[in-house]
Amino acid sequence: MTAELPVEESAAAVEAEEQAPTVSRLEEEGDVAADYLEELLDIADIDGDIDIEVRNGRSYLSIVTDEQSQALNNLVGRDGEVLEALQELTRLNVLSATGHRSRLVLDITGYRQERAGVLAKIAEDAVAQVKESGQPTALQPMGAYERKIVHDAVAELGFISESEGEGSARHIVISAAE
């Protein structure tokens, strides 16, 4: 005789599993994504190596090359727009192949790492402005991944940040800790 979990508990267990993917599932996502990206690079006749790393509950994929490549820079696009689109296409491919939504992060030629430094500086400048004026400061709209980087930087500086707005107008407002 087997004991069955109540429907509520089993639904909660499934939800918890989806929220905290296992390392093996993240590695599978990374492998599926890497295969997809390699095929795209081959079709476009672009040289690049793909590095896969699992950290902080996400798969991180980086397309890198030993020398500067205009073709890879084109895959980043202006302000990372092409990179964002390619990341979403890669996530859709992973969903199609695995049946699981992916939160993978794609980087090309170190763009995201460089951008993280810029975002940290934006956060520092906004905190300085809040200190000086005593008033909350709103930043320009940005994507979810960039907002997360700014939220983390602001929290490290001991200030409060909140996302406001909808869709492409979603932005961060920084204020002093109460």
Rank of each mutant, 00 (worst) to 15 (best):
I149L: 13
Q129L: 08
V118W: 06
F159Y: 15
L89E: 05
S10L: 15
E9P: 04
V173Q: 00
E53Y: 01
A138T: 11
T109C: 08
V150W: 04
G110C: 11
G57Y: 08
D47H: 07
E27M: 10
S62C: 02
L26N: 04
G30N: 10
L157Y: 00
P6I: 02
H100N: 14
A153Y: 03
I149S: 02
P6F: 01
N73C: 01
R103Q: 09
R58V: 08
A153K: 10
E132Q: 11
A33D: 07
A85L: 11
H151A: 07
A116T: 13
E67G: 10
T2F: 13
N56H: 13
E38Y: 11
G165H: 06
L95K: 09
N74G: 01
D51T: 11
M1H: 15
I43Q: 03
G30W: 02
S175W: 02
E39P: 00
G57R: 14
A34K: 15
F159L: 08
N93W: 09
E28Y: 02
L72T: 08
Y60H: 15
L92A: 12
G134Q: 01
D152I: 11
E18Y: 13
A126Q: 10
L106S: 07
G167F: 06
I43S: 04
V150D: 06
Q19S: 11
A11V: 14
D125F: 04
V82E: 12
R147N: 15
E38F: 13
G167A: 12
E39S: 11
L106N: 07
I108M: 05
G158K: 06
A11C: 02
L89K: 11
E84A: 14
A126T: 10
I160E: 10
E166V: 12
A97D: 08
E166D: 15
P21G: 02
E162P: 02
E156G: 15
E39Y: 07
E38C: 00
G77R: 07
L89R: 10
S161N: 06
E4P: 00
L86P: 04
A33W: 01
D107Y: 06
E178W: 02
D107Q: 03
R115H: 09
Q140M: 08
H151W: 06
Q68N: 10
P136H: 01
V118Q: 12
M142H: 09
